[in-house]
Amino acid sequence: MTSLPAWLKSGRVLIGLTIITIVAVCAIFAPYLAPHDPSEQDLLAMLLPPAWAQGGDAAYPLGTDSLGRCVLSRLIFGARVALTVAFLASMGAMILGAVLAHVAGYFGGWIDWFIGRIVDVWMSFPPVILSLILMVGLGTGLRNVILAIILVDWTRFCRVLRSEVLVVTRRDYVAAARLLGFSHWRTITREIAPATLPLLITLMSLEMGVAVIVEAILSFVGLSVGAQTPAWGQMIADARQNIYQAPWNLICPILAIFFTVFGFNVLGDGLRRTLDTRLSETERA
């Protein structure tokens, strides 16, 4: 039996993975787990408190919102939007940013300069405003949310990875590969990319957390998925009206976001500690 890879032994990675697995299970099996249809309105049971509180109803474990919809069901279905956006948007941002970073860092010269200036200009826009403008232009919908996040956040990958690519490119083994006749493509994919992969994975797991937050912000202002699809940001926006009568309506989605983002961040930190070769043994211990 082969022993577990080092990164799986890290407590942080395990905690992160557990949290994300729980959220992912909720998202995938939402129709089976949720007690109600998330859009089903029960106007006779509006703003019910959680089941354990006084006046609660066991049929609605976390109570209902102002339209009498089951909060728990909406939370569970909301995980679908959150995770879809987290995975696809960070994947897209990673691909776009990583490709440009490798091109810039490897070839250097005016290409590096050009990509570097694009990143500079891009990053000078406030990210939330940029994504709001994009959403207004693109229109609402899951695909457009993902696209907006990719277009805002690829710069983060590009900036950080480029410096790593620069360091690796200067290693002698890259020069040796070129001397032996490796093409640029093969040098990048076989010699440089494997060395930047740990950083890439780490950045991606952190980016997933960011994507969850950005999606929540967009759906809070009503510029994400349509009103018919439950999303955590929307729930917060809805709950705002009745913040004094039904605070749990606000607290539940906030906790869900916190829980998920925390999971991604802990996972990212754990991966950084175990995969990053630059960290010394002592810090890893």
């Binding site: 290693r171 002698d172 083994y173 020069a175 001397l179 010699e191 494997p194 060395a195 070769t277």
Partner: peptide, 18 residues
């Protein structure tokens, strides 16, 4: 390439650790 090859100074940096 067929005629000349180089041996680098620092074996640490000259060999891909992966």
């Amino acid at each position: 390439r067929e005629h000349v090859q180089m041996v680098f100074q620092d074996p640490q940096s000259a060999l891909n650790p992966r």
